[in-house]
């Protein structure tokens, strides 16, 4: 197991906790559920990258990269929704 994978998981966990703690503030971000889902896949990829070293390596490795790929796609979708599809101003502007 690489150290950076473990560090990545810990940071992802902290970010996840931070998001949950300030959930009501982050809900002001437009299409936050989609962005959050995107981060969930980031978190999942980090988790799978750590756990693949202990059991079910092939499957978890597959899932790690799959989650990573999905997060990239979701990020693209979210950016499109925020910057292209909607002309609405988001809170905080």
């Amino acid at each position: 197991m690489a150290v950076h994978e473990f560090i990545s998981l810990i940071i992802s966990c902290l970010v996840m906790g931070f998001v949950f703690l300030q959930w009501h503030q982050f809900k002001r971000i437009q299409n936050f559920s989609l962005l959050f889902l995107c981060f969930v896949f980031v978190f999942a990829a980090s988790a799978f990258s750590v756990f693949e070293h202990f059991y079910l390596y092939p499957s978890l490795n597959f899932l790690q990269h799959f989650a990573s790929a999905l997060s990239g796609i979701l990020l693209a979708i979210w950016c499109r929704l925020v910057y292209v599809d909607t002309k609405k101003d988001t809170p905080g502007q």
Binding site: S68, A69, S71, G72, I73, L75, A76, W78, C79, R80
Partner: peptide, 8 residues
């Protein structure tokens, strides 16, 4: 993922 990031 790279494609997604580029689009984003």
């Amino acid at each position: 993922g790279l494609a997604g990031a580029i689009f984003a």
